[in-house]
């Protein structure tokens, strides 16, 4: 572990211990926030009891569908747009302003269109995630060095060989950046939509518990979401760095 990582770990542990102390002394009262140790214990009890299995399955499945659809559509659109300069130029203002638009504002409309099932939530996750995949795919393809493309031509590699030997290894870290952000955005989209209005899912359970002042359910679920999203982000970031190092050796 590097020195920075050790300091980071110490900071996180220190922050948790501080919150624990503040809760135990009573500076933060129990109604506002539970001590982290109690949250962790409640989370364990909640997971063991299995009452949240249905909600968790629903949320994670919807996130997976939204993310997978966004990655597939985004990569395909990115590949299709690459090299078509005229279309890319026209779409440039759309990509530049897309993330300024609060996608959640479309959620009411989607509910009216599709009803209160899974569809509006998956669509919000998809809409948040897809453009970042397109942009990163284009970025990755733009960064394939011209020397490498020419080398492929000199060796008369076919389209398949060029893709797997030249384009993919070179563009992979940027593609993975897109996937990483897509997963984070799909999470944000689906859980946000569940929170705003839905009948099931972890976001719904959190808001339900909040409305009933049920801290024994609300805090563990918040903790669960934090742990899962941070963990997934850390794993993908790590992989991204490995691919980047491999690319730079190329």
């Amino acid at each position: 572990m590097s020195r920075a990582a050790r300091y980071r770990l110490a900071f996180v542990v220190g922050a948790i211990v501080l919150v624990e102390l503040l809760c135990r002394i009573g500076v933060i009262d129990r109604l506002t926030m539970q001590p982290p140790s109690a949250m962790a214990r409640d989370l364990f009890v909640l997971l063991a009891s299995g009452t949240m299995n249905h909600a968790m399955l629903k949320t994670f499945a919807n996130v997976a569908i939204a993310c997978a659809a966004a990655v597939i559509a985004g990569v395909m659109l990115g590949v299709a747009l690459h090299g078509r300069h005229a279309i890319r130029q026209v779409l440039e203002p759309l990509f530049a302003t897309y993330y300024a638009i609060p996608i959640y504002a479309f959620y009411p409309l989607l509910i009216v269109l599709f009803g209160l099932g899974d569809m509006p939530q998956v669509l919000i996750g998809f809409m948040l995630a897809v453009v970042v995949v397109i942009v990163n795919t284009l970025n990755g393809l733009d960064r394939v060095a011209r020397v490498h493309r020419k080398t492929a031509q000199v060796y008369r590699l076919g389209p398949a060989a060029t893709t797997f030997k030249i384009t993919l290894p070179s563009a992979a870290p940027y593609l993975l950046t897109g996937v990483k952000l897509a997963l984070a955005y799909a999470f944000i989209g689906v859980i946000g939509a569940e929170f705003i209005m839905s009948r099931t899912g972890i976001g719904y359970e959190i808001s339900f518990a909040y409305n009933n002042f049920d801290n024994k359910i609300m805090y563990p679920l918040i903790l669960l979401i934090l742990i899962v999203s941070i963990l997934l982000n850390a794993i993908l970031s790590h992989w991204e760095q490995i691919l980047m190092r491999r690319r730079n050796r190329l």
Binding site: L31, T32, M33, L181, A184, F187, I188, I191, G192, F195, G203, I206, S207, Y210, M218, L221, I222, I225, L226, S229, I230, N233
Partner: peptide
């Protein structure tokens, strides 16, 4: 940045 911050909303409201 990658956390769905909406889950923190109840804590903000309570605070």
């Amino acid at each position: 940045y990658s956390v769905p911050k909406i889950t923190l909303y109840p804590i903000i409201l309570l605070a």
